[in-house]
Design a protein around this nucleic acid. Structure first.
Lengths: 206, 206
DNA sequence: GAACTCTAATACAGTTATGTATTTGAGTTC
DNA sequence: GAACTCAAATACATAACTGTATTAGAGTTC
């Protein structure tokens, strides 16, 4: 039984959202270029007509997908910063944050696809880079906060460490997805925390 | 003027090699699934007939491409190990090795494509994982050698550090390719060496 | 050099994608 | 509730890719 007769705007928004959701699933499953507009529409329960009525192109939809996910990430990070956590909790959050971003595997794949797309498409790369730099700066700020509370100073720019953090977690995450047996969670965590504590604690002033 | 009238076998080998080269270029440029068999053949100066005469499928060719590149990497690494370098040189080699693997950008993209393919195709993943584990073990051995000469001991299994090394270098490399302005070489190098020296030197026994 | 062989080109048949133009029908307006 | 509007379906015209089956011709064999 249909709860409610949807208004035109609600109905359109629902369609749009379903198309976005279906696209995320299909792109993760088959890859960006192997996913046809037809795939997306069909998987969302519509036809191509609905797609072209809501998006100009597959690329446009894809960017919207990234934008929305990035927005969620930023909001989550901001909440963490605002929460005024203890040093221990902050440390935990720093180590776990990135993995949380990719809480389901779809997101990991989608950003991996995005990176490749960025290598190929100048316009796309510009939009992508803006998102990445925002993320880097956010994490850099996070690291700075962390160091301040620990009464430490970094040997280099926080931005560089932010990049290293993203890079490291990304790579570890990939290994975890692709061959979970070879790198049990405990091991991954220990490697990460070793790298981080050695790196950051190594720079303690006293 | 044609140097020499090629023997049938030579001619076939030349065709095969040209197809492989063209595939590497096209796959890096357009992506694996966006690259058609036609693209590869045409770009190599042949028609699809030549392709199907030399390979069973695009996937087969792709795996051959990876296999060959991986073979080169392994050989290079082995040479380094055999060279019996000084500690300083060994350290340099460790930091630079991975970047050398991707000496031209094509290879980076091709392996990124391979990672995504591995996420989707079980059979492919199995072949891929074998290559990755070989590489990990090789680098782990490299790290062990390094530590031995430095008279250090690692706090954890060398394999874990090898994975972290690969992950970190991979991620940094991506940033370097995608936005070289944001991460000048000097900066990337300093981040890497900081991470490594802090991590490994932090574990010195005395 | 005639008969043979195998590489690569060509021809073919089938499938799947694209975007636009047009139509249908569920919501909206009065 | 009749006229209207816009979201989504359908129809259409193209284009591209796939793999196989067949053919042409450059090497090979004797």
């Amino acid at each position: 039984m249909p709860r409610k007769r949807l208004t035109r705007e609600e109905s359109r928004e629902q369609t749009r959202q379903r198309l976005l959701d279906a696209a995320a699933v299909m792109i993760a499953k088959k890859g960006l270029s192997a996913t046809s507009v037809e795939d997306i529409a069909e998987n969302a329960g519509y036809t191509r007509g609905a797609f072209y009525s809501n998006f100009n192109s597959k690329t446009d939809l894809f960017i919207e997908l990234l934008r929305l996910d990035h927005q969620n990430i930023q909001e989550d990070l901001q909440k963490l910063l605002d929460a005024d956590l203890s040093v221990e909790d902050l440390q935990k959050q720093l180590a776990l944050f990135y993995a949380q971003c990719y809480r389901d595997d779809n997101n990991y794949v989608i950003w991996a696809e995005a990176r490749l797309q960025a290598l190929r498409d100048t316009k796309f790369r510009q939009r992508m880079n803006a998102l990445c730099l925002e993320k880097r700066d956010m994490i850099a700020y996070f690291i700075e906060q962390f160091c301040k509370r620990m009464n430490m100073s970094l040997p280099g720019p926080a931005g560089d460490y932010a990049l290293a953090t993203i890079a490291l977690m990304d790579g570890m995450l990939y290994f975890n997805i692709i061959m979970p047996n070879e790198l049990p969670d405990a091991s991954a965590e220990s490697v990460l925390s070793t790298m981080f504590s050695k790196t950051f604690f190594g720079s303690l002033p006293a």
